[in-house]
């Protein structure tokens, strides 16, 4: 850095410091941000400018500001304007000052503010992405109930299109429920699933095998003709996995397997003789 450039920097920092109050008022006016929030930023920026130009604190504050604005639903422009409007506020002070040094210093400060503005924007969009991901996860949780059908029998009624991620989440939840409830039987009902692809079919299959490794049995019910066709055409080996036409059939099967006698499966009369121990 040359000596005149140093002088320019000194001059702009002087303006930045000595004109704090009018600067903050004007900045707040243009950006629409509360003056107290801006005062913290001004403070941090001044410390960085006077000192070793370490912008870590400024970035920390800006990051916080961008994230909270992303959460509150501010637009990206609104958020970026908080930073960029500082330029306008400073420029007005520079004009009032009227010196060439100050103008040259302003060019330097301006570049710095541009960088900070971009940083703000990046943090803002990262925060927004995070919000979207969180919401998608919450939806996934909501759409995947594991219900208890009987002592020792749980079921997951799957509805809608299954993608690989959702299938994985459901299956992990099912296996965990087996452990938590000590259930040895699970029914995966896919009556409400219009179609499956290879990956989803594989996940279903792996779940059945994993359950078996844990000491539980899975029955898959409600396979539509179309899905049966897909599975056969794709050459996926369903092997010795038990499949039943309906959830009712699967329940009857699971009941029988767990030692409950079911009389006349279709007529809802269930005589219970649970095998204890």
């Amino acid at each position: 850095m040359t000596v005149p450039a140093d002088a320019a920097r000194r001059r702009i920092v002087e303006i930045f410091t000595s004109q704090e109050e009018p600067l903050l008022r004007r900045w707040s006016q243009i950006s629409g941000a509360p003056i107290d929030e801006l005062r913290d930023l001004h403070q941090a920026l001044r410390t960085a400018l006077v000192g070793d130009a370490d912008l870590a604190d400024v970035r920390g504050l800006l990051g916080e500001l961008s994230r909270s604005r992303a959460r509150q639903g501010y637009t990206p422009s609104d958020t970026a304007r908080v930073v960029f409007s500082l330029k306008e506020a400073v420029y007005e002070q520079v004009e009032a000052d009227g010196q060439t040094e100050a103008l040259r210093g302003f060019a330097w400060l301006s570049r710095l503010i541009d960088d900070l503005g971009l940083f703000t924007f990046e943090t803002y969009s990262a925060a927004r992405e995070k919000i979207i991901i969180d919401q998608a996860e919450q939806l996934l949780e909501l759409s995947t109930p594991v219900v208890k059908l009987w002592e020792g029998i749980v079921a997951v009624p799957l509805v809608g299109t299954l993608d690989s991620a959702r299938t994985q989440v459901v299956m992990e939840k099912l296996l965990q429920t087996l452990v938590d409830t000590g259930s040895e039987h699970a029914v995966i009902d896919i009556t409400g699933v219009p179609a499956v692809d290879t990956e989803v079919a594989q996940h279903l299959l792996k779940t059945v095998v994993a359950a078996r490794l844990m000491g539980a049995e899975c029955v898959i019910s409600g396979i539509r003709p179309q899905i049966a066709h897909t599975i056969v055409t794709l050459g996926i080996e369903f092997g010795d996995i038990v499949t039943k036409a309906s959830l009712a059939d699967a329940l009857a099967y699971a009941l029988t397997r767990s030692g409950v006698q079911v009389k006349g499966a279709a007529t809802t009369r269930v005589a219970v003789r649970a095998e204890r121990g």
Binding site: E172, L175, G182, K206, T207, A210, R212, L213, G215
Partner: peptide, 24 residues
């Protein structure tokens, strides 16, 4: 056997043939 362990074993390609298992 924990669910995560079971899922991993399946992915690894290990079937534990001949081993009987129970939940607890």
């Amino acid at each position: 056997m924990r669910p995560a362990v079971a899922i991993t074993l399946v992915e690894l390609g290990l079937s534990l043939g001949g081993v009987r298992t129970a939940l607890n």
